[in-house]
Amino acid sequence: MRQGEVVLETRGLSMHFGGVRAVDRVDFALYENELRCLIGPNGAGKSTFFKCLTGQLRPTAGSVVIRDIHVTEREPFEVAALGVGIKTQVPNVFEGLAVEENIWLSARRWHVPARARSLTAETLERLRLGDIRTSPVGRLAHGQRQWVELGMVVAAEPWLVLLDEPAAGMTHEETVRTAELIREINRTATLIVVEHDMQFIRMISHLVTVFHEGRILMEDTMEAISADSRAREVYLGHRA
């Protein structure tokens, strides 16, 4: 699994909010074509970690390097321009716009009109959003909104994809479909997926990083983590 080049690396990455150390001196490395899962209890700092990676937050200390480029001080749109797609924990979509326009706005950012149109059509089909393509996203059910956001990420054809709880609030079937989709994305892209659902993680991932109180507790396969007493303790109350 650990082969090829490191495409994303953080060194001593810290994000403090007043006294809260949401992310605390994290050294993290992601290899090309990996599908990494990030788990950890509520408030472990997973989302904050993602925000630091994508320029949404300026880290208090440390650095983020994506493909040899220092992005620590960059704006989110500049990080996106490197080919990084992110799905946020709380869905960020264009509520008042139709599903297809949401997707089109993503595809059109990087492509000429004709290609953007065909890419939009492809993405709608791939995510099975064809039937609702003219509905405003604000009227959709939660699971569908998640997929619209996923569609926006996919339509940009990123090579690095960060997904923050992509299956949250989904039915079992939707979750299975999302897992399929993530594996499909992984054929052409490197991914980090934050999830709480252990079943889901078993479906998709090999290597899992456990966050706890802003730090990396351990990094191993799901089997090893399930067997580990520290990890179980941290996750007490969660399905493991």
């Binding site: 994508t54 949404q56 704006e75 989110p76 749109f77 996106a80 321009a81 797609g85 992110i86 946020t88 960020n92 979509v93 264009f94 509520e95 008042g96 716009l97 326009e101 089109w104 706005l105 993503s106 059109r108 950012r109 990087w110 009109p113 956001e149 926006m152 940009a156």
Partner: peptide, 22 residues
């Protein structure tokens, strides 16, 4: 395209930024 991007910013500034629009 320019106008639609402006509308998308009205709808959700963060998402527009994450899609790569300045």
């Amino acid at each position: 395209h320019f106008g639609r991007v402006c509308v998308s910013i009205r709808e959700n500034e963060l998402r527009a930024e994450l899609l790569g629009y300045d």
